[in-house]
Nucleic acid binder design. Structure first.
Lengths: 132, 132
DNA sequence: CAGCATCCCGGAGGATACTG
DNA sequence: CAGTATCCTCCGGGATGCTG
């Protein structure tokens, strides 16, 4: 376990975490999970409301995503028995804590979306202008 | 544009960003992209070295991922012409900036991986113990 | 409303072989 | 070494229909 490169600067220092990062990404790293957590970060939602809030998610994917998140202890599922039946989903403390790094990601996204689009456009134009 | 719920606390405030978040997630939100960026956050890598560093990535996916990241202006591709040929990949400033939110995500992953596994195990055991 | 079961398709992504 | 091209598989995920 001798570290191979000592030029580890402040912003770097990914390393051993990388594997756990990979691990966790395979669980909550998909688009729908993140969007569900982001939605629930605002307020608890019922099933249908959540589906409407998320825009583009299918009923199937919402069900699956919610089940996984509940399984991972990130959200709670509460059945209010009444007619018609209502089920509320909310973040657990762990789920709450995830919203913090998610926020920085969202901020980054907000800040750099323009740059990405620009770079992409540039790259694409270079591509088509291959000749001459 | 009257906001529907005024109980917006500090940690919440996802909202309009959500769409840009979704957008960006579709670009750099996949496992391989994140792992590549994390790797390059340590130091520049050559193609093969990167493939060895990442563990589990196929040659094809590495190529594709690198191309997309370059297209999005997150990494640079530098061809050193020598024999045998060497190509170095490194983060651009924008790419560097992504490592910041990535770090908080990695930290979160590190901190909560145990909790996730635990919750999952619990949930699973409940499942098998459906009866009684 | 909340949710499961089915069918089905497109594309993500691995394995392999070839090139400069 | 650093890729490109091809083939093939698997499963993410949409559409639809049925239950409680």
């Amino acid at each position: 376990m001798t570290n191979r490169h000592t030029n580890v600067t402040a912003q770097a220092r990914f390393g051993a975490e990388e594997c756990s990062l990979k691990e966790v990404l395979e669980r909550v790293g998909d688009k729908w999970s993140i969007l569900v957590v982001a939605a629930l970060a605002r307020e608890p939602y019922r099933f249908r409301a959540l589906q409407r809030a998320i825009e583009g998610i299918s009923q199937r994917m919402l069900t699956l995503t919610l089940q996984r998140l509940e399984r991972d202890g990130l959200i709670t599922r509460t059945v209010l028995d009444m007619r018609p039946p209502r089920v509320e989903y909310a973040l657990t403390p762990t789920g709450q804590s995830l919203t913090v790094p998610l926020r920085s990601l969202a901020d980054w996204a907000e800040e750099h979306r323009g740059a990405l689009a620009e770079s992409r456009a540039l790259w694409d134009s270079k591509r088509s202008g291959t000749a001459s």
